[in-house]
Amino acid sequence: MSLLKLEALSKKFGDHWALKEIDFSIDEGEIVGLVGPNGAGKTTLFNLIACRHRPTSGRVLFANEETTLCKPHKIQKLGISRTFQSSRPFAKMSTLDNVVVGRVFGGEFHLFAQSTDIDSARQLLELVGLAHKEQTPAGDLTLSEQRRLDLARALATQPRLLLLDEVVAGFSPVAVKQAVDLVRRVRQRGVTLFIVDHFLSLSLRVSDRLLALDHGEKVAEGRPQEVMRNREVIRAYLGTRYEDE
């Protein structure tokens, strides 16, 4: 049964189509990579799924419910969480508080943070390897730490579907390897993952399937190896390399 279903999803900015007629679906428990060159529309697709933007046409269904016109804070309650391409930590708050926020507002509301909230936030910091920094203001973390914090905060809301936008951009090979581990562990918690990964360093290793976009259009989908052999995908990637740079 598909967890997320996109039907002819399109988004126009001014008179520029950022996404055109995207049909796609993701099953529960899958890890799907979303690839494509700069400006392909990856972040835009995430913004539509997470209801940051409204699509120009088309529908989004999550767990068989239409969520196309939801509010961003509502969609989270239904079970979709995300990280941001440029990570957005709550800079002046402690690392622990950052995760507690996710926990508190993702779940049932209490007036005060419960000790269970704080405990599970600590566990998540442990998971992403930030336990030793729990009292550091999030703004003082390094870039890769902030990315991991973003991930922990998103996980704290206990999502069914997690959208990760460029989690490993700029990571060293060692850090990418750790991220691969991390993503697998997240999947073991029963979370479905949709991962944007421009340089493919993460998604080629962990994804069950890939969706490739170029200029807002779907150019390929399927098993990673197949998609990477697809001529249009190769052209899209090499094309940008030779035309834009």
């Binding site: 002046k92 708050m93 926020v101 007036l111």
Partner: peptide, 26 residues
């Protein structure tokens, strides 16, 4: 400020978009 209200307000101050994404009704 120590309650979840304070937590929400600070999160909104720091990153409104992220606050919304974790479910805060900004």
């Amino acid at each position: 400020f120590r309650s979840n209200l304070g937590l929400a307000l600070q999160a909104i101050r720091e990153e409104e978009i992220a606050a919304e994404a974790v479910g805060i009704q900004v």
